[in-house]
Each structure stands twice: as C-alpha cells, then as structure tokens.
Amino acid sequence: MRPDAAAALEARATTLTFGGVLRSEWTKIRSLRSTVWTLVATVVLTIGTSALLAWAVSAHLEPSFLADVDPVRDSMSGLMFGQLTVAVIGAMAITSEYSTGTIRTTLTVVPRRVTVLTAKLTVLACVVLVCGLLCSFVSFFIGQSFFANATVTDRDGAADTVTHLDLHVALTDPGVLRAVVGGGLYLAAGGLLALALGALLRNTAAAISTAIGLLFVVPLLANFLPSAWEANVVKWLPTNAGSAIWSLRPTTGDNPMLGPWTGYGVFVAYVLTALLAAAVLLRRRDT
C-alpha cells in the first residue's frame, strides 16, 4: 500500500487551495483534445471570415456607404462567428462534466462549489482572452491591408467610376487599440456567458443553443422590431451592447450604440447576472 512512507505523509499534509483548484481546471481544459481543437477552429473561423468580409466590404464600397465604414469593426466581423465556437467551449467546460458524471468527482474532491465555478471561469476567461486577442489582432492587420486600398465604385452616372481610397487606421489612432483589444474581451465575456448557461442548464445541447440564441439569433430577430422601438431596444441587447467595445463608430446601420465601455459594461452585467444565478444554484442543487 505505501511503498514510500514519506510520500504518504506528504499526501496527508496537503490542503485544498484556490490556486490548486485553478491548476486543476487548467489541467482539465488542456488535457482534452476537443477543447484544443475547438480553440483552433475558433481562430481559423474568426480570422477566415473576418478576412473574407473585410475584403468584400473594402472592394465593394459606394460613396453613400463611406460614412458607415468602420475599418476596425469591418475587419473583425468574424468575431460574430467566432463567438459560436467560443460558446461551445464555454458551455462544455461544465456540461461535459455533467454528461460524463465527472462533476460528482470534482465536487467531492472540492466540496466548496463556488470555488470550483470561480476557478473554471478564471481559466476559461484567460484561455478565451488569449485566443480572442490572437483572432482580433490578426484579423485587424489583415483587414487594414484591404482597407489601405479600398475600392469605391460610383454607379451614379452612365458609366461606373472607380476610385481607390486609403481608409486604413493604425493601432496608434484614437480608440483603435481599445477596439482591437476589445475584440478579445468580447469573446472572453461571451465564453463566460456560455459557461454560466452550462452551469444553469447542466446540458450541453440546451446550453449551447441558448447561448447561440442569445448571442446570435436575438440580434437578428431585433431587426424585425418596429423601428420606433429599434433605436431604444437594440442597443441594449447583449451582442450589440458588447460589440460597442470593438467598434470605432457609435452606430450600427441607423441605430445608435452605447459607448464602448458602457456597452461592454452592460454585456458584462448580463454575464455576471447569469454567473451569479449559476453560483446560487450550484450551491443549492444536489449533484
């Protein structure tokens, strides 16, 4: 049983610490090939769609659109797709424990349940933030190379007149660095929302579809609202509030947006509310 009595003594002298639980959650996330691949998919999907959309916008401008061009947001629009795979990672960080039953082992070894949730969200936020920053910076630079030579086609006359404009911005321009870093912050908060939903619903399919519904479908549905409501309601929706942080211009289409930090604050407030509810239920429910 005990080939090495010293090792056994050492085992007895240990205590449960938050740092230990953090390391544990990090080990869990990195030891699953599925998480690693989903992160890779996020990077490829986000940068790929960002580049494609940045090219499409920059190559097909018309004079009347010019006022709406946001060279930062329009070079990182792939984040809207990246948040889908991030939602999968966030939700599965906890629902995979429920579906496999690992949660019972986890909560037996660490009976302080809120500690488990806090460690999980910290590790997830860091991982998604790093992944998100990689996405936003690479997308930004690819996008700027397109916007440096944007094609504007004036279809007004009998023949199209084509002009080339340099619309690109630099990281040092006002608000740009904030917006690019904001892309990473946005994805991190989205991942946490999915984690909270996963902890609340304890089911992978339910959590992922709810997260995607909130982040992706609700903003689309809002387009069908009567226009009188639109201006007041749309800016408060999670995705729209959150994307203010990675935009330079304070509008989407005709709608005003919240300020960058106000908008992100609103998004984070949604996330924190969901996490708080998750923590309360995690403490109360039988496992």
Binding site: S31, L32, G101
Partner: peptide
C-alpha cells in the same frame, strides 16, 4: 464518471492539483 477523452493520468493529475 470520467470524461472519456481524458487519460487516466490527466484525470488523476487534475484531482491531485486541487490539494
């Protein structure tokens, strides 16, 4: 009650880290 995609070593290691 173990995640099928994880190795036995990593499963134990993640639990060992907590303490």
């Amino acid at each position: 009650a173990v995640h099928g995609g994880r190795s036995a070593y990593d499963h134990l290691l993640s639990l060992a880290h907590t303490h």
